[in-house]
């Protein structure tokens, strides 16, 4: 199973054209009365549900991100799939949190200063969670740079901010806005349960020693045509590096 390479451009080429065309249509259409009615309805919908979607997608991102490192139950293609889900959910989470902020500010429910100034009140908690989430998102986008520049620990510690952003976001969701209904509280509890389960799995796995696999392990070795094979060729450059786990792979520069 192939997945998207981190060297691929961030957006496919068609995305830009589609976005530009759609933006043109939306810009023109929003001036017309039906478009205005539609925009009003969308604003109302987003002001109610963008936050909910943010919570759901962020929970999904956290859970799949944790699970993608699980090595006991999941095969490699499962983990690749989870990485894909993790990326998709993260993109959606950032989208929805931006929509949430924008709609709340435009609706006059939050002041524009709330976007940048965190605090300990319910809205300020949301700001804090948003900023932590931004850190996580930026490190996620720049993962290739961090991971390949021999500083994976920097990336790891920065990306671990997700473990902080998520509970803060949960606290924000429970305290700000309307008083949560019972099913909303149930949803929060389910989200917390899912993340707790995933983290427990991760902890259990991380205590288990890692089996190091080398590329071509299962293949029959090629016949030695050169008896004078060099040491440099036989030596594995980095014992931790595998196909699925390229950390530590030396890159020429």
């Amino acid at each position: 199973m192939k997945t998207r390479s981190s060297e691929d451009p961030l957006l496919p080429t068609w995305a830009l054209a589609v976005t530009a065309f759609g933006a043109l249509i939306v810009t023109v259409g929003a001036v017309t009365p039906p478009g205005a009615a539609l925009a009003g309805g969308l604003q109302r919908f987003l002001s109610f549900y963008a936050g909910v979607f943010t919570l759901l997608t962020m929970t999904t991102a956290v859970v799949t991100g944790v699970l993608a490192s699980e090595r006991v139950l999941l095969r490699i293609h499962h983990r690749v799939l989870f990485q894909g889900v993790h990326r998709a959910a993260s993109v959606l989470a950032v989208t929805f949190v931006v929509a949430h902020l924008l709609v709340k500010v435009l609706g006059g429910v939050a002041a524009p200063v709330n976007v940048v100034v965190p605090g300990v009140d319910p809205v300020g908690l949301g700001t804090l969670a948003f900023q932590l989430m931004l850190v996580v998102a930026v490190t996620g986008v720049l993962r290739a740079r961090f991971a390949l520049r021999a500083r994976p620990w920097v990336w790891r510690s920065l990306h671990s901010v997700a473990y902080l952003a998520w509970p803060v976001g949960i606290a924000h969701g429970l305290t700000a806005g309307r008083a949560p209904a019972n099913w909303v509280v149930l949803g929060y509890v389910l989200c917390m349960g899912a993340v707790a389960l995933a983290v427990l799995t991760r902890l259990a796995v991380s205590t288990r020693p890692r089996r190091i696999g080398h590329a071509g392990e299962g293949l029959t070795p090629a016949p030695e045509r050169r008896p004078a094979a060099s040491r440099a060729e036989t030596a594995v450059p980095e014992p931790r590096a595998t196909v699925g786990d390229p950390r530590g792979t030396r890159v020429a520069r």
């Binding site: 997945t3 589609v18 939306v26 259409g29 799939l81 990326r87 989208t95």
Partner: peptide, 23 residues
């Protein structure tokens, strides 16, 4: 792969939300 389809779907959804926000 399915992971790529997911990523594309997320991208499309994000673009749609962005267009809605533009409106």
């Amino acid at each position: 792969g399915p992971a790529d389809r997911l990523g594309t779907g997320a991208l499309v959804l994000s673009i749609m939300v962005g267009l809605g926000l533009l409106a």
